[in-house]
Design a protein around this nucleic acid. Structure first.
Lengths: 200, 200
DNA sequence: CCCTATCTCTACCACTTGGTAAGGAAAGGG
DNA sequence: CCCTTTCCTTACCAAGTGGTAGAGATAGGG
């Protein structure tokens, strides 16, 4: 009773195209008309599913956040306690950043657009952040990790990922094909750093 | 003979306001009308000095690149050879990133806007990159630094700075007032890393 | 004093933007 | 077979965009 099976997949296709466009070219630089043309559909079809461009962005952000959260949850599940789990998380985040650069672009875009949408994103990630901080605190309580501020740790990880992604972009911009090596090296550095930072 | 002294400082004020607006709100999100209102001037006054919005962006980018380059040159001059100079450069870059976040925002904006403007920026920085790589190679030849690709090293430094700046932004977004400590810590980490990476 | 170059203004325009109103097609359950 | 819901359409609009044309003001050199 919660919903009738849709007869069309247009809504999902709109979300996909919007994510790609917003994440790579930016929100302001993407017009509903362009989006519609790419989809082979009229602009009003988009507005049928999403009452306004801003609500389309909301939907894209919500879905992306949910997707990232799910991927992280899945990657956490398979690992035991202690540092193995940390390493798994870092690997997952790097994988997402490298394979789906538009997601990182979307995050940047959201932070640029400021409070209304940014706070929504933070709200979306809140449960995940809660779980992560709870895990870190439990490990600290168990004496397996050195005590520190879990939220600061998470921010540090995210920023390092952004830096690594920037590296890939810049290398591409100056004509050096990045290859996966630099990202992998960055990941290894971060893991080494975290290991020493977390050792009790 | 190269130019007549201008009777008005409007042109410079336009450049200042445009840098701030482009770097914080983005190029697309900034209209010439808004810019004009901020300056207490008509839009056409802006278009008198800069024939189009894109040429205004060009001018902003050129001036910012020149300014950053000059600051780096100055910071290099005062230091002796070897790692002291590297440390000076890193300090300068971090200082610019923290005190003038709009400059970093502009760089991000330029890389988002793609080839036409991005290649211009790269061109602007080319002399500086040349000097830096020449210095690094000379040090390597003298056996003071371990041999590696200088350009990759530069990109790595820049990306780390971006990551540190991201950290500040995110902390602010989640309501944690960053304080200078995290940026300083990041800087120290990078210097330590570079020292070990460059040691012969 | 005039004249030229510098500077800012008013008036206007073609175009694109996000968004509204409303109608028609088509599928599926009764 | 009808009729409701789902889906996508054409037609249109108010507002804002970057940009053009050209006139008026002001200062300084001759």
């Amino acid at each position: 009773m919660t919903g009738v099976a849709p007869r069309s997949d247009t809504r999902d296709r709109v979300l996909d195209a919007a994510l790609l466009a917003f994440g790579t070219h930016g929100f302001d630089a993407t017009s509903l008309d362009q989006l519609a043309v790419e989809l082979g559909v009229r602009k009003q079809t988009i507005l049928y599913y999403f009452p306004s461009k801003n609500e389309l962005l909301d939907a894209v952000v919500d879905r992306s956040a949910t997707e990232i959260a799910a991927e992280l949850e899945a990657s956490i599940g398979g690992a035991g306690p202690g540092f193995d789990r940390i390493e798994n998380i870092v690997r997952t985040v790097f994988r997402v950043a490298v394979r789906r650069p538009e997601l990182l672009g979307l995050l940047r875009e959201v932070s640029r657009l400021g409070p209304p949408i940014a706070s929504r994103l933070i709200e979306d990630f809140e449960p995940l952040v809660q779980r992560a901080t709870a895990f870190l605190e439990a490990e600290m309580d168990a004496g397996r990790f050195r005590r520190s501020d879990p939220r600061l740790l998470l921010v540090s990880v995210y920023s390092t990922v952004v830096g690594a992604a920037t590296e890939v972009e810049v290398l591409r911009a100056v004509g050096i094909e990045p290859s996966l090596r630099s990202a992998v090296q960055r990941r290894r550095e971060l893991i080494t750093f975290l290991r020493s930072a977390l050792a009790p």
